[in-house]
Design a protein around this nucleic acid. Structure first.
Lengths: 145, 145
DNA sequence: TATGAAAATTACATGTC
DNA sequence: GACATGTAATTTTCATA
């Protein structure tokens, strides 16, 4: 995926502040704004950059309970699990992984009662293991460039 | 954290595209650009918005191996684990959780050999369980508003 | 590099307590 | 009247052909 040093620099800058203007990016990488715009467009187009998002504190949105729920989904239940569980809005991340606890979900709930209810629903598709998150010292840290 | 409907609307818009201009946000929520700017600044200042970041495809950066590594860190080793493992650049997320597998790490490696090396380093602090990520049907989905 | 658009800043209006 | 929150007008900066 031949990225040159300037591309990598731009990715690094956008990873830490996605709202930097093209002009500002240009200053930081010593290029004109149009040149930067073109590079960023290309990075988007090639799928290197897949989007830009605001990070929001779940607590401030009234969802202080964060948990990681692992589910040993029985193989026949896979499709139904995907259809009914993955769209639930309290899920922010869902990974399909190796091992027999084959799904791993990050959920953000308003209360422990809501978490209990979520786990009960997930349990219809297999055994679950739930860990409450105390803290996340690293969250969405940028990849090295 | 009293957020009104406009705040929620702005958060939703910025969650799905953090590069929208204030003018564009203003159009979408039927408010003037300065009014929107003021609201967004307040949301940032109150810590509701904690930042803006570009999402980048790890594969396109030459890191196709993604894994979730759980570590049963022995309590005395906690501080050293934080100091030496958490800063490793292949980690994008680290959660401290309940249960005896008390740390959960998401790592992105260039090769399985690199993952092996990572796991060996982590193992100095306790037993590990590693799951390779096949796919992540939900990644960083916005919270409901 | 030139243009039209957007951002920052200032001044002023409105509504609520 | 004081405060929060909005609009309007102006200048500077930015996006883009």
């Amino acid at each position: 995926m031949d990225l040159d040093d300037v591309d990598r620099h731009l990715l690094e800058l956008l990873q830490s502040d996605a709202r930097l203007t093209f002009s500002e990016l240009g200053r930081r990488v010593s290029l004109s704004a149009p040149a930067v715009t073109e590079r960023v467009r290309r990075l988007e187009h090639r799928g290197v950059i897949t989007g830009y998002s605001a990070r929001i504190d779940p607590e401030k949105l009234g969802r202080p309970i964060q948990a990681i729920v692992r589910v040993r989904v029985r193989s026949l239940d896979g499709p139904r699990f995907r259809e009914t569980i993955l769209p639930l809005p309290e899920i922010t991340d869902a990974d399909h992984v190796t091992g027999d606890e084959c799904w791993q979900l990050r959920v953000h709930c308003r209360t422990t009662a809501e978490l209990e209810q979520f786990v009960e629903r997930a349990q219809r598709y297999g055994e679950t293991t739930t860990s409450l998150v105390f803290s996340s010292p690293v969250r969405g840290r940028g990849l090295p460039l």
